[in-house]
Amino acid sequence: MLETLKRVFLLDLLDGLWVTFKTQRTSNISTEQYPKDRPKVGERYRGAPRLNINPDNGETLCIGCDLCAKACPENLIVVGTERNKETRRLDLTYFTYDLSRCMFCGLCEDACPVDALELTQDFEMASYTREGLIWDRQMLEEGPRPTRYTR
């Protein structure tokens, strides 16, 4: 009997409508206003790659061990090195990173023994061309420069 009355007066429906109504308060808005407000991403966010340099002398931290290239599932990292006759070490000659195939799994970052390669919190990596997504050493060291739109 009660059930029938409830159905006739659409009480169950009103219950649901009340839930909707409660959410109307403006303090409940959870939409992000991107790009006006840039979201703060997590500290461990895996975004644009960066090749770290030593802040004191500007030299690259990369030792050219090629471990990141070996770890990469998509084979998108190419490391070029040259044996330095004096220090008997490998000098980095070039470093390319093909972002168009990257899936940001973080395996290269895990593999790096000297924390030279890092996936940063930058997430604005769009480019107008496919070639623009193949980052060379300079781009990797300086980081992406996203277009700033102004009115």
Binding site: G16, S30, G42, R44, Y45, R46, F104, C105, G106
Partner: peptide, 28 residues
């Protein structure tokens, strides 16, 4: 209506994922 509410709550889970491993969807 339900879609908006569920997405709102799912966002909280995804934020936990992001803070933990650095990705929201394809977490690895």
């Amino acid at each position: 209506t339900a879609l908006f509410y569920t997405m709102r709550e799912r966002e909280e889970v995804l934020k936990i994922f992001e803070n933990y491993c650095g990705a929201r969807l394809t977490t690895h």
